[in-house]
Computed example of a mutant assay.
Amino acid sequence: MGELELDGVTKIYDDAQGTETAVDSVDLTVRDGEFVVLVGPSGCGKSTTLRMLAGLETVTDGTIAIDSDEVQELAPSKRSVAMVFQSYALYTKMTARENMGYGLKHSSTLSKADRRRKVEEIAELLDITELLGDRPEEMSGGQKQRVALGRAIVRDPEVFLLDEPLSNLDAKLRSKMRTELQRLQEELDVTTVYVTHDQTEAMTMADRIVVMDDGELQQVAPPETAYDHPVNEFVATFLGSPAMNTFETTVRVNGETTSFVRNGTVFAELPSSAVSLSNGDRVTLGIRPEDATLDTDGDGTFTASVTVSEYQGNDNFVHLDVGDVELTTRVPPVVYPDAGDDVGVTVSPEDVYLFDIDSGRSIKTRGLTDSEPSIRTPPSTD
């Protein structure tokens, strides 16, 4: 078992310059065997949260429990957690075998023979048996990371913590290690909390993602739910590459059709039954780059001027100007207009996103009917 529960967990730093709330009243339950990813911009509090789970940072307020047993006052070695760091943190004078077995030597009653056997079992699982006699200086970055993972796994922790473990690897190796980590986590069935600023890692690896900003949880949901049904504008614009286009518009209601207008240009239209808005309301319109359809003949809901077309291989990023609005679109590689061309742009009503201008809360997400995604709404900003 390894259910992890955070209840009102808060971290406040206090120094001569004053106080700073790094993590603000985080409530989160990670189910036994679940792979949860904390994601957000630098300084959002995700690594501080992980370090509090590990016992490397004290908790200012709130509780942390593993299988209902509170651990926030326990030393790291008493928490049944294992952490993998971004920097590998291997002992340079020890071999891979010694690095992996060091924690067992000091935290278990296993005999030397049993420790050796366990290290060899995990080395085989990680495909690093041939490295057991090597020191870190003889290893590549990917090999060092496998040894660091092995050192954590060999302890059979109830909770596995990973702090941006792939950030030092090149793009090809990161992709491979993402797959390896998912395979390992499923095979070991260990509760895992993974921290990253890389949304690709978050979206591809997580059972649920935890989006954080300014120390607060913004949304906790499966990746596809957070992407299609963000609770607010921050989540919507943080998830996705290129980022969602957002800009303020005025509502125009004309019978059964509601339009969203800026400087005389109608950017999108919805059935009036899809939203509860009044004529003259101001809302933020959101358009994901992949949801904009381009027509080089100029047919569409509105017309835009091409500024740059960027070839990406599988698709193209086409940047557009519409008056004072700049849009980025993601289109198939066969669509490659030249700079200066006028194109028609259409966004399906199902793909229109709307946000409250003042609070940023979502008014409408993907689809035309109400959905009930598995989300946690952030505290009111009123």
Rank of each mutant, 00 (worst) to 15 (best):
V9K: 02
T10G: 05
Y13P: 00
E34Q: 07
C44H: 01
L50E: 02
V59M: 02
G62M: 03
E70P: 13
P76R: 01
S77R: 10
M83Y: 00
V84N: 05
V84T: 04
E98H: 02
N99H: 10
G101A: 09
L104S: 05
S107L: 04
S108E: 06
R116N: 15
K118Y: 01
E120L: 11
A123H: 04
A123R: 04
D127K: 12
D127G: 11
T129V: 06
Q145L: 13
L166C: 06
L166Q: 07
A171Y: 14
Q185A: 10
L188E: 08
T192P: 00
T196V: 07
A206K: 13
V210S: 13
D214S: 14
G215T: 08
Q218V: 09
P223L: 01
L239F: 12
A243S: 03
V261D: 11
L270G: 08
R282D: 12
R282S: 10
V283S: 05
I287N: 12
D291H: 13
T293I: 13
T296G: 09
F302W: 10
Q312V: 13
L320V: 03
D324V: 14
E326A: 10
L327K: 14
Y336Q: 15
S348M: 15
G360T: 04
S374R: 11
I375Q: 15
I375A: 12
P378I: 01
D382E: 15
